[in-house]
Design a binder for these strands. Structure first.
Lengths: 341, 341
DNA sequence: CTGTTAGCGCCTTCAT
DNA sequence: ATGAAGGCGCTAACAG
């Protein structure tokens, strides 16, 4: 039983009409009467023709209904990061509502060319580690929307990271506090470490640096100081890195009384580590997170954190892209008072 | 500054060679001398031609290097489920290593037709809620691999859910235990509830029912009994449903001494709920999970659970698909003794 | 090793 | 409302 794919031409011949009529029946309802159209559609269904071949349509029409979501890191990382996967959720819900498809793209600069010819546009999440990728994406002329970073001349979705970091730090800090910061990707190093005087990584584009600015401003306004020895760099939230940082900071003397963490995952590690060391939270140690992930709300004590809606960021990005809007958008955030400070 | 896309033909003309030569330089290195090829490639680079148009290649060659990952539920759900997102991780790592791309597909039966023409194959995770989708996928003739369920005539990736459930339950149960089961999708209902005598949902294909079989066998062998009043149905792990179930079961009299949960997320909710009620775990209450997600290891006390590697499942599925292998594969699992039983 | 040519399957004027 | 025809950009087979 051979299953030779029917082509539009075959069908036209079988039904004794022209190819244009079949094509119109599927793509341009206004070009023929409703009844005629219905007649043709059911005839097609009967003989097993499910509509024009998409590959040919993509070539012919020049668009595919596929949107690429470009991830800063490998898909491997992104998917295990709650914030990123929640973003995907938002993006996909909007795309789905518009009949678009989602290509999850995580590649090097080279291979962006694999998809640029048929994809309808790009949503980019997080500044690529790889500068060349960003350039490559920016040079092609399909629409682009960025999330959590900026690309010259392209619309971006962000929250005000600086202000959010400032707000939560201000809430946490009292005079006489000894404060430490657990930062994400502050310098260009593959391991957990204090930043000391290492040059800051991607300083202008990175949201981590906006957050750092906010923390530092709050620290200064609270009349406190912090030296670079008390600022940690963590290469990525997941895996062992956060735990290492948590242990280092909690075993440092004098032990900080407040730890500002740039992600909830980091904060949760600090929390667990502190509890198992018998440190009382928040009496002896205050902890703040960043992001507002579900897990932070499942855990006791509840984390004090900055809630930003990654779903909304994803939706906004997809909507911007589909609408062809070129205006950046700043989304709101909410401080969430938990039990950790 | 107009940016008219260069075509292969344009380039051939500009360089004064035939189109075939250009095409070969990019696609079939063996068809011309290395030096000639290099010469052409650099010339192309110089004039800004990055290689043959992919949309045209897809039509011409009949494949796209795109693999669709078909999700049982909407992308929205799957991505927030740790098990599912970890699977994506495995799939994507293998695809990436082979230069393939990942289309995240979550649609209804209808729209599978949107992609079937250009996608190279399908990996399906979890039985679709929607029976028609499964049929539609099975009827087309591109390769398919399923994970955590079966499609007639297609290779599948699974663990032995029945045996795994049996093993962990056997470990947890003692005589005189009063046992409850928190199940996932046992019946066709949108709310958390006891199953009583509702007809079981998709009994043959569902992994939940394999797990249930394993639990029941262990219960029987331990000389215990359980009635359907003590088996809960939870429509999905995430969101409020697990919490509702946790509260219901812990507030039932007589309170169970052992609760077998079909996912770690469910088990974690039970654990949090129990702790906040002042119930001692495992002295007064034993809890088992299923899956072995990261979060379960970040939480104290550590969950006793069945660890299965979703990453490996994803990898295996992708490898099977790319290799064109049609043999199903059963992956190993490991019992993890935690502090909850 | 290079050049020519016939489609891959469709959409869209244009003329009828 | 229909039929004919020219591409979309490329590849593979074949001939040189």
């Amino acid at each position: 039983m051979k299953k030779n794919k029917l082509t539009l031409k075959d069908v036209a011949q079988q039904l004794g009409v022209s190819t244009a009529t079949i094509s119109n029946a599927f793509n341009r309802p206004d070009q023929l009467s409703a009844s005629r159209r219905q007649e043709i559609l059911t005839a097609c269904e009967r003989i097993g023709y499910h509509g024009p071949n998409k590959a040919a349509q993509i070539l012919r029409k020049g668009h595919s209904n596929i949107v690429a979501l470009v991830l800063a890191d490998s898909i491997e990382y992104i998917v295990s990061d709650p914030v990123a996967s929640t973003l995907i959720k938002g993006v996909s819900s909007v795309l789905q509502a518009h009949g678009k498809h989602l290509l999850l793209y995580a590649g090097d600069a080279q291979s962006i060319r694999d998809v640029v010819d048929f994809v309808d546009g790009f949503i980019c999440y997080g500044a690529p580690r790889n500068v060349q990728l960003a350039e490559e994406i920016n040079q092609q002329d399909k629409p682009v929307v960025t999330v959590d970073f900026n690309l010259p001349g392209r619309p971006a979705i962000n929250i005000d990271n600086q202000q959010a970091a400032y707000d939560i730090a201000r809430k946490a800090l009292n005079k006489d506090d000894k404060v430490a910061i657990l930062g994400l990707r502050l310098i260009d190093a593959p391991t957990t470490c204090r930043i000391y005087d290492s040059p800051l990584f991607e300083e202008d584009r990175s949201i981590s640096h906006r957050r750092l600015d906010g923390y530092l401003r709050a620290i200064e306004e609270a009349g406190l100081t912090i030296s670079n020895d008390w600022i940690w760099h963590i290469p990525e939230s997941g895996g062992k890195y956060s735990r290492q940082a948590a242990q280092e900071v909690l075993n440092s003397a004098p032990r900080p009384t407040t730890i500002l963490c740039m992600s909830d995952i980091i904060a949760l590690e600090v929390l667990q580590c502190a509890l198992s060391m018998g440190i009382k939270v928040p009496q002896e140690l205050k902890i703040t997170g960043f992001d507002g992930i579900d897990e932070a709300a499942r855990t006791r004590p509840y984390l004090t954190t900055v809630c930003q809606s990654s779903v909304d960021k994803g939706k906004a990005a997809a909507q911007l892209l589909l609408a062809g809007d070129t205006n950046s958008q700043q989304l709101p955030y909410v401080l969430k008072k938990g039990e950790t400070c």
